[in-house]
Design a protein around this nucleic acid. Sequence first.
DNA 1: GTTAACCTGAGGCATCCCCTCGACTTAAGG
DNA 2: CCTTAAGTCGAGGGGATGCCTCAGGTTAAC
Lengths: 178, 178
Amino acid sequence: MERPLRRDAQRNRDALVAAAREVLAERGLDAPLEAVAKRAGLAIGTLYRHFPERGDLIDAIVGEKVTGWIELAQESLELPDPWEGLVSFLERTCELQSRDRAFTELACLSHLDDRAEVNRLIERLVARARRAGSLREDVGVTDLALFVIANSRVAEVDPGRWRRHFHLMLDALRPRSE
Amino acid sequence: MERPLRRDAQRNRDALVAAAREVLAERGLDAPLEAVAKRAGLAIGTLYRHFPERGDLIDAIVGEKVTGWIELAQESLELPDPWEGLVSFLERTCELQSRDRAFTELACLSHLDDRAEVNRLIERLVARARRAGSLREDVGVTDLALFVIANSRVAEVDPGRWRRHFHLMLDALRPRSE
DNA sequence: GTTAACCTGAGGCATCCCCTCGACTTAAGG
DNA sequence: CCTTAAGTCGAGGGGATGCCTCAGGTTAAC
């Protein structure tokens, strides 16, 4: 049923996806599709041939990013030390934000269904860290969300300094008396 | 030389400035001027009669906001307790951000000349708090700027919770051992 | 060589915001 | 009142930007 794409068509399709990754990272989820085509060195018509609806291309990229984020959370859960696990997740999330505007948008500004999955994992990261006494007792998932949201602007405005801010915030998460 | 405005003209001019305050607070510094006219219940032509260049109206509002911010810093410096002074400044700044998008933009995203004045005052707030031992030694003006920048996004995305985030951040500013 | 698949990019459409200007309205002074 | 200069109105011209289509030229594949 599914005829394979002609070789050049396949190459172009791949180029479009790669270009979309770059452009969305730079300009966010509603970057103009013409910028994507241009980056891929193709005409806008070609883009529409492969992805007739705006959603098609964007969805592909968003899917990738969400999957990547979920994997990140899972890997962090597998780290033996609970505190390190939590820090690893937060730090790498913040780093993604500093380099990928589209990721930032879906991480803190949108309300995807897929976020539910990540939220569950974050809850486990938090519960584990708290049980180990590494996290302030009154800090919950919501607070970490605020944390990530806060970083999104810092990373945007001053990409060279988000890490400094990040470490200050981490200090706020530790229990008061050691 | 300066004929006074006709009474209705003066009333309209005032209405425009008031409308601009509201609209800029809601939509940021580059809100469409037509929204301002509409809010004032006037036609766009009237707005242009009073403020022939875009800058004229915006500048008036920006001026107000900067002045207000400087006054806030001065008041905070006059509080007897250094830590309270710093907190007061930060908290009221964050609160302004939560209600005024134009303020947010000029407070963390732009590079006005007038910011110099505020920066000097902030430096004094910081120096004073540190001398009193209320502030972590390694925290400087830059860190507070990041703090304010961070809040701007939190206040935008989740206006009901910026205060919670604010208090967590304050904890990060205190010296480690009490 | 044939042909179906593919590529191209100018251009029509829509949205948004800028600002102007000629016709109309009204405050203010006599 | 009446005059008139000051003020108001809002349709509309102009420029950006982005979406998407389609007629005509190109090329992979057999």
